[in-house]
Simulated assay, not measured.
Amino acid sequence: MTLFRNLAAAAALLAMAAAPAAAQEKVRIGTEGAYPPFNELTSDGQLVGFDIDIAKALCEEMQVECEFVTQDWDGIIPALLAGKYDAIVASMSITEERKQQVDFTDRYYTSPVAFMAAKDSDITEVTPEALAGKSVGAQSSTISGNHLQDAYGESDVRLYPTQDEANADLEAGRLDAVLVDKFVGQEWIDSAGAECCTFVGEDITDTAVVGEGIGIALRQDDDELREKINAAITAIRENGTYKEINDKYFDFDVYGE
Rank of each mutant, 00 (worst) to 15 (best):
T142M: 15
A168G: 04
E96W: 10
E154Y: 02
A132G: 03
R107W: 06
L148I: 03
E97S: 12
A168W: 06
Q163C: 07
Y152C: 08
G153R: 00
R98I: 08
T70G: 13
L80S: 15
L131K: 00
T142K: 07
N167P: 00
E154V: 00
T105F: 03
D103K: 12
S111Y: 02
A117R: 01
K134T: 12
D103P: 07
E165D: 05
A79W: 01
W73Y: 15
L81F: 07
D120M: 03
D120F: 00
D122V: 11
P112W: 10
L80P: 13
M116S: 05
T110D: 13
G133H: 05
T124S: 10
A114W: 14
Q139Y: 01
V89Y: 14
A166P: 05
A166N: 01
T70Y: 09
Y108S: 09
D150K: 15
P112Q: 07
D86M: 04
G137H: 06
L170Y: 11
W73P: 11
A117P: 04
S121Q: 03
Q71R: 11
D120N: 04
V113G: 04
L159G: 03
L81E: 15
H147T: 11
R158L: 13
E129Q: 09
F104V: 04
P78S: 14
G153H: 03
S140N: 13
D169Y: 09
I88R: 00
P161V: 04
Q71F: 05
A90C: 01
E165M: 11
T95Y: 03
A130N: 11
Y109D: 10
L81C: 01
A114G: 14
S144A: 05
D122W: 11
I77L: 10
S140E: 12
D72A: 09
D169M: 14
G173P: 03
L159E: 13
Y85H: 00
D74Y: 12
I77W: 03
S155V: 14
V157R: 01
G133V: 08
P161N: 03
L170V: 13
Q149S: 06
A166G: 02
Q163H: 11
L81S: 06
S111D: 06
T142Q: 09
A138L: 09
A132E: 11
D106E: 14
A90W: 02
I88T: 00
T110S: 15
G133N: 07
D150Y: 15
A87G: 02
W73L: 14
R158N: 11
D122G: 15
T162C: 06
A172W: 08
Y160N: 12
T70A: 14
T95S: 08
D120L: 04
S91T: 10
S144Y: 08
F115G: 01
V69M: 08
L159T: 09
Y85M: 00
I76P: 01
R107A: 13
V136T: 14
K99V: 11
P112R: 02
Y108V: 01
L80H: 07
P161L: 05
L80M: 14
Y160P: 06
Q71H: 07
E165A: 11
Q71C: 15
P128C: 02
L159Y: 06
D164V: 01
E171P: 03
